[in-house]
Nucleic acid binder design. Structure first.
Lengths: 208, 208
DNA sequence: GCGCGCCTCCTCCCCGGGGAGGAGGCGCGC
DNA sequence: GCGCGCCTCCTCCCCGGGGAGGAGGCGCGC
């Protein structure tokens, strides 16, 4: 049973969502809030599995409520449900820790699917939003730095991630190799590029 | 009925996928290919709705096959299914036009779900992959750097030297202060600029 | 078959980086 | 005189970064 907290300042929307969810055997709406302040308080008291969170609300908004709720209980799945899918809503929400982002014009079946996937640890996004996320990620990837020479392919991989400011552990995870292997590559990179420390290595990678 | 083309060089995997899909009332496997060249030919002849595409294959690889198939029929949904989820597989696949990206260690139910969602116009991604995509998109968005406000004069001095790649001892010598003092400033800088490590701090200083 | 480079991972070891939690001196505005 | 922010430096502590010196597996060219 998924314990759900609904947060939206429009009563009608809460009512619709509640009716929809109450008809599901695996979802239980444990509370409703019509602003961020109340959402924070209710989340602390009711400990829901999933919070369906509106963004634009009077007083404390959904972004603030999201980060506060997650600061308190990081395991909570906050699923944003909003009318506005533009970047200025999307990215603050993701930075605040929202696990997914759905638009209110989605069909009811998608909402329910999203709630279930959020509860299962997945990250549901509306198609339109996901497309933009992927586009931006691909675009950002394309901007990654020009190569240096004399480095092996793997060393170049590691170097790029050092240049992004990742730790050895993060690099290991990203490349699916061991931390010791990362260290080996970095030792080799530092001698090859004549860098006395990691920051210099990062600067080298960026052509600085 | 979803018309599906399976592309994978490992016979065993094709067999497993076929068995899985044949058991579904709404999916029909219309063909199989064990390399990219054959995939391109079969896609042109069979006009599948969805292509489940492996990446590493002898001869023509999955990336090339994906872009060729989509150049021919853009409406085709190419869903990558691979063992390797790292960036060097992911981004080329997305650039080539893949609509989704699943890892082979996913449970069978997720595979079927992914095929159905791909057919429906959605973009299925493995959680791990999606997390990275979102991270990178958020990170790219953050390129518009949050203002560096609130630094004291001395913190700014230290920050400039960190950005040049100096060690704490070198910074201390340069500014004629103790190493512990340098550490104090750096700790303060890292919290103020929200940097998890020294490289990120240096990048922050450089507006990267 | 052999050597070679690359990639992977290992142990042993140590220092520098960084967090937590202080304290004292100074100049400033009120 | 008092509070305050800044700069300075301290201890205690620990982990991550990085050096030294290995090893095995793999694919490649010869």
């Amino acid at each position: 049973m998924i314990r759900l907290l609904l947060v939206d300042d429009q009563h009608l929307i809460r009512a619709g969502l509640r009716m929809l969810c109450d008809a599901q055997p695996d979802i239980e709406v444990v509370g409703e809030a019509d602003n961020g302040r109340e959402a924070i308080a209710l989340a602390a008291r009711l400990i829901p599995d999933v919070v369906v969170m509106d963004l634009r609300m009077p007083g404390v908004d959904g972004i603030t409520a999201t980060s506060r709720i997650l600061a308190d209980r990081p395991a909570t799945r906050v699923l944003v449900l909003t009318t506005f899918g533009d970047d200025d809503h999307l990215y603050p929400a993701l930075t605040a820790g929202a696990c997914g982002f759905l638009l209110k014009d989605a069909p009811p079946a998608d909402l329910l699917d999203g709630i279930r996937r959020a509860a299962a640890g997945d990250s549901p996004f509306s198609q339109e939003v996901l497309r933009r996320l992927v586009q931006r990620a691909v675009h950002a990837r394309a901007e990654t730095p020009p190569p240096a020479q004399g480095l092996t392919a793997r060393e170049q991989d590691v170097l790029n991630l050092v240049a992004e400011g990742l730790s050895n552990t993060e690099i290991a995870d990203r490349l699916h190799i061991g931390v010791t292997t990362v260290k080996t590559h970095i030792t080799s990179l530092m001698t090859k590029t004549n860098s006395p420390n990691r920051v210099r290595l990062a600067l080298f990678a960026r052509g600085a």
